[in-house]
Structures are given as structure tokens and as C-alpha cells.
Design a protein around this nucleic acid. Structure first.
Lengths: 120, 120
DNA sequence: TAACAATATACCGCTTGAAGTATATTCCTT
DNA sequence: AAGGAATATACTTCAAGCGGTATATTGTTA
């Protein structure tokens, strides 16, 4: 109902480096927690909590697939969220860490898919 | 040196309603603290502290003019800041509170200028 | 220099969030 | 049903931020 509440909530989600890295990777494709662990090199609990934070505020969606939880960016997005996700992508293009994450994702995509039985 | 540090710092600045209102008004023109008090209807200390927060992180610049401090958006902006300020403007267009602030600023501009001796 | 106006800062109490450790949940497999 | 794998949650500690009250700073004017 109050547009600015949602906007602030978006910005709150964006002011943590781990969450930015998660969103950056999700912009490529849906991923499950174990993939984030592999890609970010961060402990499971940290990733899980940040994903829960994002999910609670509607910045990601989750769907269970057997043992795995597949996280994705929401298909339906508010104008504010859509604009800020685009802006984030724009800002992040030049950034070493985020580019590395993407490179790692693409380089290891096949290996990850082969070694892990989850569908994402 | 570390691009993502600055980006996160920008998002930290943007996740408070008062600061968003300040930035929204500064997008129109430079303003001093007393004008913000008048326009937002918030106590001086609150406005002053949020402006200090923004200034410390480079989202606004300040210049003393006699008794007054004139705050403005920085002339030179990093690409990240520039993109996010534009995105914010875009997001805020539809929002009642922010539109009201702008309306109030424009409607009272002449009165403010006439009644207050500060240069902004 | 004294008084005043505009603004900034110090301090306090409260809340939120981040990371870590431990444990719980959920689903699959045997 | 039991064990295991993937993920989530509870709890703790610590730091940061917000709002309020009081006070300090800085510059102007009489």
C-alpha cells in the first residue's frame, strides 16, 4: 500500500555485499544453495540466511525440488524492484568481484550440473 | 579502490525515508537545513544528522554561507551514484509523499526565499 | 564583547542486522 | 523405519543506526 516502504525495503536488501552477489548470480539463472556455497565460498548458514532475508522481502522466490531449494528472481516484479535490479546490473558490470562470480558460474556451469543431481 | 564498497555505501544511504526525501528535494535545487525543516516538518537535529550521514558518504556536498549550510548533490558523481540517483528519481515519480515534497517546495519557493535571508 | 541564529555533535536507549555455533527440519534412499 | 543430504532456524554476541534531549560550535549583529 505504501510505495516508499517497499522501496526502502529494496534498498535494505541491497546494502550487503553477500546479498548483492547472490542477486547478481540469480540474474544469470536460478540456483540452489549448494551452488551459491560453491561459487561464493561462503558457509551454508550465511547464504541460507541472506536468501531468507531476500525472500521475506520479495526480492527472490524459492521452490523446493526434492532436497534442494531453487532460488530465482521473481517473475512478476514491481516497477521499483525491476528498475533497481536493472540499475544494479548496470552498476556491477565494471566490478571485479561480481564479474568474477559470473565468470566462475559460467565456467563451472557444466561441472556443477554434472556433479550435482539437483535440477538447477 | 574497491568499487563495491562505494556501491553498498550508496545503498546504505538510500534505505532511510528521511534521507530519500532529502535527496529527492536536492534533486530540484540546493537547500539549507532550515528549508528542510520547513518542508519535511522534522526536527533540526534529525535533518542535520541525516545530512551529515549523506555527506560523510559523498552523496551530498555542503558549503557554508554565513550562518547557513547549503547542501547540494555533488557536481562530480561516480557512475554508480549517478545511476542510482537517476533510478531513485524514476522510482519516486509515482510516490505521493515525494511528490508532495516537491509540490510543497515549488509552491513555497517564493515565500521561503522572501522570508529567509539565506542565499539558497 | 555579548547575545543570538543556524547548525552540528555527544550521549542515551532502543532496535536491527550480521556472523558464528549448534540444532532442527524436510525430503530422499535404503 | 533409519540414516543421510540439503537447507533452515534458534540463540548468542557484537556493531551500527535511529530518534530524542541536551549542549556545543560557528558566524552574525548590535
Amino acid at each position: 500500500m505504501n510505495g516508499d516502504v517497499e522501496l526502502i525495503s529494496i534498498y535494505e536488501c541491497l546494502c550487503d555485499q553477500t546479498r548483492l552477489r547472490l542477486l547478481n548470480l540469480l540474474n544469470v539463472r536460478p540456483l540452489c544453495v549448494c551452488h551459491f556455497q560453491e561459487l561464493l565460498g561462503e558457509p551454508q548458514v550465511k547464504i541460507s540466511k541472506h536468501l531468507a532475508y531476500l525472500r521475506k522481502r520479495g526480492l527472490v522466490e524459492a521452490e523446493r525440488d526434492g532436497n534442494w531449494m531453487i532460488y530465482r528472481l521473481p517473475k512478476k516484479r514491481s516497477p521499483e524492484l525491476d528498475k533497481n535490479l536493472r540499475c544494479l546490473q548496470d552498476c556491477v558490470q565494471e566490478n571485479r568481484i561480481f564479474k568474477q562470480d559470473i565468470t566462475k558460474l559460467k565456467r563451472r556451469s557444466k561441472a556443477i550440473e554434472a556433479s550435482s543431481p539437483c535440477g538447477c
